[in-house]
Design a protein around this nucleic acid. Sequence first.
DNA 1: TAAAATTGAAAGTCAAAGAAAGTCAAAGGC
DNA 2: GCCTTTGACTTTCTTTGACTTTCAATTTTA
Lengths: 156, 156
Amino acid sequence: MAKLSDMIENFIKQMLEENDNNYIIIQRNELANYFRCAPSQINYVLETRFTYERGYYIESKRGGGGYVRIFKAGVDEDHYLSQMLSRKMGDSMGQQVAYAYIDGLLEQNILDEKTHNILKNIVSDKTLNIQLPLRDEVRANIVKSIFLTLIKFCHE
Amino acid sequence: MAKLSDMIENFIKQMLEENDNNYIIIQRNELANYFRCAPSQINYVLETRFTYERGYYIESKRGGGGYVRIFKAGVDEDHYLSQMLSRKMGDSMGQQVAYAYIDGLLEQNILDEKTHNILKNIVSDKTLNIQLPLRDEVRANIVKSIFLTLIKFCHE
DNA sequence: TAAAATTGAAAGTCAAAGAAAGTCAAAGGC
DNA sequence: GCCTTTGACTTTCTTTGACTTTCAATTTTA
């Protein structure tokens, strides 16, 4: 019965949707209290679901008056794609990171669900079943190729 | 007494029939418990009876809140896809052959132009820049994975 | 009274425990 | 001899809790 993380994820996403800004501010302990879970559970959700690759950015402050601020990347498709490409995408990429990038494309409404699914399966370890240094290199190439193709489509 | 595997197979098929969606979600351990068998028995049934050649697609997640999701293709309306699926694609595939398969998906209106483009770039020699016996094997896997995933989405 | 220490209120870190599912090889039945 | 069945072991994902760090406000102290 471990849907807690999913519930928290959806809760945060809904807050982001309903908000006029591209960010929300939460109190970690308050949210943990609301869901009756350990505060670190919130960190877990943020670390696994609201990553840079998925188009999110987290900022926080400790101590009195502390907070956690969650940003969601903007809606300019072209900009989003080239940002992702130019920053951080290395020559080697693990399965989870690749998944995150592709999830981000769905969340930004750049891909529909069908394509999203196809691409995730393509970059899975199961499909890319070759030796490990190579596998992650091919995967990085594939993900980059996806972003490149999408950028081309922006300019048509 | 019918074999256990057959009983489990029928049970799952019935669940699929009675469901409005083209998929069902089960807990592996729960089902194993229901049939009083080892959990891995469920895997055996899935591997031998719910293969993609027969028009099924399996998706699963481990850990807390884990599940197994079984999709059934709507075979009737999708002549093309089910034909391709039951036909064996080789374990190795050159660029041109892969292109042909992906072009076919566009012609059958199974893919839109954007996705079609992304996929063709993925299976290109340029993206898959590894040594040659391996390259064609990975490419074959990718193309198969595409068709496999499409099963999920071919219900009216 | 200004710097320094104290305190309490956040958030962060990390590792262990728990909860599924996957793998694989050996044993059992026809 | 090939399907089935089982069970031990592995891997992945989630949840929890104890401990740490940071910050601001307040209180002490020179």
